[in-house]
Design a protein around this nucleic acid. Structure first.
Length: 574
RNA sequence: CGGGGCGUAGCGUAGUGGCUAGCGCGCCUGCUUUGGGAGCAGGAGACCGAGAGUUCGAAUCUCUCCGCCCCGACCA
């Protein structure tokens, strides 16, 4: 039982000046967390209980699914990360340190290597598979910009699991088992979430889905089709390529378009000289970039920007990408800034990527590769050649769903889980093989599954709080019931105490405000701020032998007889 | 890393060259009070982020550094 008279807790009346988002503000005000440095927080009793509640739920669901818990050090030697190249690839995001002998160490940002090596050390037969292991661990990443309190920290708690299988079908099954376990976990955590198609990112791999908790302060943007349920991270959103018949398209024509280096200026001149009706959507934007040292051109409709994140995510193998600068134009005189067109692009040494919206057979107004001149009726497949199609244009609300063609909506969310099929990358690099039934050695295939545990505290707070405080789901809250004793006589305190004991016997966790020196107003405000789901007030109603039961979330109140209170309250809980 | 803002007591803040740095919350003592962040009286708590400089005199002006927040870049 948590007794407020002795609980290590000080709530704050004012919002902390350095907190912006609701979860951060309220977790600090309600005395759950305190900032130590940017992106690094301490957990006070209430916060730590909440965090452990979430861990407990995750553990229970992982164990139920048959996954086994292990634990690695957070402090790791360099060599394991050397073999997979990540000592260098992870770059500045890794916290590095040295021991007294000058040996290199790191604080683990993620533990693929350790899991792979652990399995390699113990298992060597196909009969040992499939296997899934997990850990709940503090991870460290030197984020360029920690933000939003506990949502994006430099130290954070994560549950990560890995599955080990012999075959692709096996991996698929392990993946689905994790997916099911995640659904059960997030349901119990009382979160709203969407499972969206995602890119597996820098880790490589194939199938990938994210669990996104919608909320306005979320950093992730995703599309959702309300008609068919299709959901995808914007990076992973697919656009269907639909070829158009161009046999009746008029011939390409070069026209004078003085001073039209931008889409807006071009549209104005087109409308002045060739009649109205031209819009940016009919023009073709040629965005020149340098991808790992090679010049590429990305074609998107003129009314859309290139989404560099999407482009990068959809150009596998490309590490670094940047826009053309003036010096790059200087090196390539055939490329005229503001008047670039895809005609002859390959002759100029460009690789041409087109967004699927620039479908085969579509006709465009685009640059003529000469200053102050543009070309009309430039048809894809007739007047220029696309080397490859790649999703690169910004995604907008109302874009068509790739599954059912209905308009999609766009929303923000916090990424709380990510599951993906890693494949054989790490097993290959670290030589994790098992002998198959034919006596041949085979590389194991892996899946990777993460849940942001400390982030979930913030995400739940974001989704459930209101103007007056936190508002936890019952399984997550520091206590399921918050009993407030009011008045100056001993009686209410005695009644509250015995009610608390009765509830605990029923398996209900209780926080008891037994402070004799605090006024009722203070106790009510604190109870609401702290956010336990049921608040019981023992005070005035005692005159009729009753206590008041309040539902924090709905603010609903009712009075029940003391004798019935414990069983009535227990009924309200899951 | 680019742009913007900020650093004064545990928290929120006032103080643009001149007395001993002010206020609210919180904290301590006493009395009163107890259903919506109580009242009165007394009290403790600040090397004004750090260093250097200008000045008779610096929280206040200058420079450097450090830290924090926000936007962007970045990000299993």
């Amino acid at each position: 039982m948590l007794r407020m008279s002795t609980l290590f807790l000080r709530t704050l009346r004012d919002d902390p000046a350095d907190a912006e988002v609701a979860s951060h503000r309220l977790l600090v005000r309600a005395g759950y967390i305190r900032r130590i440095a940017a992106g690094i927080y301490s957990w006070l009793p209430l916060g730590y209980i909440t965090l452990r509640n979430i861990e407990r739920i995750i553990r229970e669901e992982m164990d139920k699914a048959g996954f086994q818990e292990v634990h690695f050090p957070a402090l790791l030697p360099r060599d394991a990360y050397e073999k997979t190249n990540r000592w260098s690839e992870y770059g500045a995001d890794i916290f590095r340190l040295q021991d007294r002998k000058g040996g290199d160490y790191l604080l683990g940002p993620t533990h693929e290597e350790m899991f792979t090596l652990m399995v390699k050390g113990e298992y060597s037969s196909y009969k040992d598979l499939p296997l899934s292991l997990y850990q709940i661990q503090t991870k460290y990443r030197d984020e360029p910009r920690p933000r939003s309190g506990i949502i994006r920290g430099r130290e954070f708690v994560m549950k990560d699991s890995y599955s080990f299988d012999l075959t692709d079908e096996g991996l698929s099954q392990s993946y689905n088992k994790h997916r099911d376990a995640y659904i059960k976990t997030f349901d119990r955590l009382g979160m709203r979430y969407n499972i969206v198609s995602a890119m597996s990112g820098a880790m490589g791999g194939s199938r990938s889905e994210e669990f996104l908790a919608p909320c306005p302060t979320g950093e992730d943007t995703y599309v959702l089709c309300e008609k068919c349920g299709y959901a995808a991270n914007v990076e992973a959103m697919k656009t269907v390529v639909v070829a158009v018949d161009f046999s009746s398209a008029p011939k390409m024509k070069i026209v004078d378009t003085p001073d039209t280096p931008t889409i807006d200026s071009l549209v104005n001149v087109l409308n002045e000289k060739f009649g109205s009706g031209y819009t940016g959507a009919q023009t073709l934007k040629n965005v020149l970039l340098i991808a790992d040292g090679k010049n590429i051109s990305v074609l998107v409709p003129g009314d859309r920007e290139v989404d560099l994140k999407r482009l990068e995510a959809n150009l596998p193998g490309v590490k670094e990408i940047r826009l053309f600068e003036d010096s790059d134009f200087a090196k390539n005189p055939s490329l005229v800034k503001g008047y670039v067109g895809p005609q002859d692009a390959q002759k100029f040494g460009l690789t041409v990527y087109a967004d699927p919206r620039v479908a085969p057979g579509t006709s465009w107004v685009t640059g003529a590769n000469k200053k102050d001149r543009h070309a009309l009726n430039v048809v894809n497949g007739r007047d220029f050649t696309v080397d490859d199609y790649v999703d690169a244009a910004e995604v907008r609300k109302g874009d068509t769903c790739p599954e059912c063609s209905a308009p999609v909506v766009i929303d923000h969310a916090i990424e709380i889980g990510h599951i993906f099929q890693l494949g054989r990358k790490f097993a290959q690099a670290l030589d994790l093989t098992v002998l198959d039934s034919d006596g041949k050695s085979r590389v194991v295939t892996m899946g990777s599954y993460g849940i942001g545990v400390s982030r979930a505290v913030a995400a739940i707070a974001e989704q459930t709080h209101d103007e007056i405080g936190l508002c936890w789901p019952a399984e997550v809250a520091p206590a399921q019931v918050h009993i407030v004793a009011t008045g100056k006589d001993d009686n209410p305190f005695n009644v509250a105490d015995s009610l608390a004991l009765t509830l605990e016997k029923l398996g209900v966790s209780v926080m008891l405000d037994d402070r004799r020196d605090a006024s009722p107003g203070v106790k009510f405000k604190d109870a609401e701020l702290i956010g336990n789901p049921i608040i019981v007030v023992v005070g005035k109603a005692l005159a009729e032998g009753k206590v008041e039961v309040r539902i924090r979330r709905s603010a609903e109140r009712r009075e029940v007889l003391i004798a019935d209170a414990a069983s009535e309250i227990a009924k309200l809980l899951p």
